[in-house]
Design a protein around this nucleic acid. Structure first.
Lengths: 257, 257
DNA sequence: GGTATCAGCTTGTACCAACAAGTTGAGCAA
DNA sequence: TTGCTCAACTTGTTGGTACAAGCTGATACC
């Protein structure tokens, strides 16, 4: 009957109990020693099973405390809308969205004049290695790291919009600043991929093992050519992306509850 | 100086060498015994470091063979277009796309009359537990598992389109079949999340440790109400989703190279 | 009352040993 | 040549031990 390795049986049994609700979100699992006694296995074997569940993002572990069932609360991202230039708001789209959700936004900026890596250059239709401005942004919600955002602007755009290469925030939002200079983005090309975080990403976003990241690349187009390329890195367990395509009046009219 | 645990140092060193190109995609790493000698660590410690890289999706391991650097080839998904009803094609969108990419599609079908789970019921605007038809689809590309797709149709729609509840493929594609009956979808609401696969998903998609899945939920709307809800589960390492928003003529006219 | 310490819990790291099981290629036999 | 066996490699599983390090609450001290 038991052809599966013992650590697998441990992981499966615990997963079943978590799914069933025996251990709800946020509750603590029995200690390794207790589990070892229950499954008649060594501590090492139980640890193998537990680390499986950790790498699958089902539980977390902390030294001195124990294992805890992970809880998920997702933040909704509306990706298919354009930034609303007419709406009377002060900051950028991120601050507005987070504040409207009753959470507290916080972000740090960094601006660099660098050269465009290949991935960016292809999308901006410039030469790899040509001059570009990178505006990097590290965002938090309620002091929890939420995302990093790296926006590259091609050199021709920076010439026309010098404030892009100055350090610090652009108070009214870069999209609005550009629109004020007559540079309006009329199209976006979005690409979405997922993978496990690099150590660097795991550090910035403070994500433990078993949590993938969601990479969102948005290339903004003017009528003539691409004007910016933004790569946003989200914690996969805390974010959901939403797109609306076509006519959704049937959905929106009834949602006014 | 070495305050980091030894298995971390092993993982970091190997990651650097992989990034640098010392071990290219598809190439084999030294054996555990060799690495143990090189890092002056026990086999167990080296295994800890390697399993870190495995759970981060950087390498794979196979018994008897060794560790291999994972290679990524992504398949592009154009999500923002409507299914083209006028184009003279025979099969569904998936078969057409895959064939056009020079790959060989293969899929298995399953049809069930079930009750709508809460997640689906909310999106279809029906009661949780009410009658619904589930069309489940397991898709392969070149015999590699690629995605699973579960589409739920509400009962009122199945009454109008009885072929939906019959087993087997709908030759011309379900979207076209519905359009032929005057049921046309004019809007989509897409939701995208990522997480580590459940054991069931890992089995169906044959994905090992360290590969997240991309969950794509598309709710299709007629002018009056939602008509279907499709949940597609992709291998995260093999797929990229693309959305186009607004006017992208500046991009498309120059891409004719 | 407030504070500091410490015992006793937890997980984390590192090592050792032994055997199971999958893969490959050398080499022998038909 | 073809096919088979098997030795020698690989990783996988399971057990053990020891100590480090983080957390918590009880206790003793000021």
């Amino acid at each position: 009957m038991s052809k599966q390795p013992k650590y697998q049986q441990v992981a499966d049994a615990l997963r079943r109990e978590i799914d069933k609700g025996t251990y709800g979100p946020g509750s603590r699992l029995p200690s390794e020693a207790e589990l070892a006694a229950r499954f008649e296995a060594s501590r090492n074997t139980v640890r193998s099973g537990l680390s499986l569940l950790v790498s699958q993002g089902l539980i977390t572990s902390s030294q001195g405390l124990g294992y805890e069932v992970r809880k998920h609360e997702v933040f909704e991202l509306n990706a298919s809308r354009f930034e609303n230039l007419n709406f009377p708001q002060s900051g950028d789209a991120y601050s507005t969205d987070v504040t409207n959700a009753g959470r507290r936004p916080h972000q740090t900026f960094r601006v660099e004049v660098t050269t465009a890596p290949e991935y960016i250059a292809q999308r901006l239709k410039v030469e790899t290695g040509s001059r570009a401005v990178l505006r990097f942004c590290h965002r938090f919600v309620d002091d929890v790291p939420w995302s990093t955002q790296a926006t590259h602007y091609p050199d021709w755009l920076v010439q026309a919009a010098p404030r892009l290469s100055e350090p610090g925030d652009v108070a009214e939002g870069t999209t609005r600043y550009l629109a004020g200079l007559g540079i309006e983005q009329i199209g976006y090309a979005d690409e979405i991929v997922t993978r496990m975080p690099t150590p660097e990403e795991a550090r910035l976003l403070e994500i433990g093992p078993g949590v993938p990241v969601l990479l969102w690349t948005r290339t903004g187009y003017t009528a003539e050519r691409p004007a910016r390329c933004t790569i946003t890195t989200f914690r996969g367990d805390l974010n959901r992306m939403n797109y609306e395509i076509g006519d959704l009046s049937a959905r929106n009219e009834n949602d006014a509850k």
